[in-house]
Amino acid sequence: MTKQNKTIYLIPVMLCFFCMGFVDLVGIASNYVKEDLALSDSVANVLPSLVFFWFLIFSVPTGMLMNKIGRKKTVLLSLGVTVVSLLLPLFGETFTLMLIAFSLLGIGNALMQTSLNPLVSTVMGGGNLAATLTFGQFIKAIASFSAPYLAMWGATLVIPEFGLNWRVLFGIFFVVGILSTVLLFVTPIEEPPIEGRPSTFVECFKLLGTPIVLLSFLGIMCHVGIDVGTNTTAPKILMERLGMTLNEAAFATSLYFIFRTLGCLTGSFFLRVLKMRTFFTISIAMMALSMCGLFVGTEQWMLYTAIALVGYGNSNVFSMCFATALESMPEKQNEVSGLMIMGLFGGTIFPLLMGFMSDAMGQAGAVFVMAVGVIYLFTYIKQLKTA
């Protein structure tokens, strides 16, 4: 594949990364659902937790599905499920309907994240995988930080005949999802044939017996737990300590994703000029400083700084853990990809624990749970290559 073809084929693939970012709307959406339906923290946090629960169920089977139908067709299937999930909230806002919509969003995203990253490897044909995945995360982050702004805009937009309010963001993302599906469908991508017998379900899980695969899996669990946790908790911290309204505090989610976007954009450069271990260490140090600020901060500037630090620091953790695991077993990329994406189940565990801790001792309890994840990521540093 020529360099020009790679660039052309990467365009629809990168638009799929934008659709992958739709999953991050669950943070701000759960806050609006909580307010509209008068839910407690622990009940409201069921929504983002439910989204990431499906990664536990569908990630490994998706890796096996790719071996049968190919990576591109699996991504197209994921886009179809995602489009349906975005359509449902346009018809109402009951808790049951939101549970169904968020479940489908989680299933679609599990399919997408498992298949899209290996598809990038196919298009790139090897080389600069971590940097390319990081650029994809930059595209994904654009959708992530735009979601709170769309929700805030919709909350002040009066459309009485439809009654969409903040849910207008689902309609906008629905249109983008349709466009992405069409563009990928018409893009020819040649995939290499699977060599040898495809792995069974049990054989896939046995790969967790490989230390670097298991440690990378846990690293991704912590990354996504901190990601979803900050996305959900940052507005609540501002409301608790600064007395902001939800619409005012929703900026915290956008601030997080703005700096995560900047981190992904600059990270694709730094990963080409710095040792991966060096850049990872700097990133985790920023996250540690952030946890300190979020735990004790009572001033707006301190809390905003902490949110920015965790946004930038956490932006490249996924790409580095994922690439490290994928490159450790190149002959089992589909299976390893399924296991790594199953690690996004951390997005279920962390919010549930954070919800119970915040109900018991305020938002500082939620920050404590995220800090445990940061501590683990410090222990992962030694697993990264120094070259």
Rank of each mutant, 00 (worst) to 15 (best):
T2N: 14
K3Q: 11
I11Y: 07
M14D: 12
L15A: 12
C19D: 09
V23A: 12
D24A: 09
L37H: 01
V46G: 08
F55Q: 03
F55G: 03
G63Q: 02
L65S: 10
I69C: 05
I69R: 04
G70L: 08
K73V: 12
T74S: 05
L79F: 12
G80D: 05
V83P: 04
V83N: 06
S85F: 14
L86N: 07
L87Q: 01
L87I: 03
P89G: 09
E93Y: 13
T96N: 10
S103G: 04
L104S: 02
G106T: 10
G106Y: 06
I107R: 00
G108N: 07
N109K: 04
T114E: 04
T114W: 15
N117D: 11
T122S: 08
A131Q: 13
G136C: 09
G136I: 12
S144E: 07
S146C: 09
V158W: 13
P160Y: 04
P160E: 07
E161W: 14
N165F: 13
N165Y: 13
F170A: 06
G171P: 02
V175L: 07
L184A: 11
P192C: 05
G196F: 14
R197C: 09
S199A: 13
T200F: 12
E203M: 05
G209P: 00
T210S: 09
P211V: 12
S216Q: 08
L218T: 02
M221Q: 08
C222V: 03
I226K: 03
D227V: 00
V228L: 08
G229W: 02
G229Q: 06
T232P: 01
K236N: 06
K236S: 07
M239H: 04
E240M: 04
T245F: 13
N247G: 08
L265Q: 07
L265A: 13
L271I: 08
V273M: 08
K275A: 14
F280N: 04
M286Q: 02
A288D: 05
V296P: 05
Q300T: 14
Y304M: 10
A308K: 06
V310Q: 04
V310N: 03
S315H: 02
F322V: 01
T324E: 07
L326A: 10
E331A: 09
N334A: 09
G343Q: 00
G343D: 00
G346S: 00
P351S: 07
V369T: 07
M370D: 06
V372C: 09
K382V: 14
K382S: 09
K385T: 14
T386P: 05
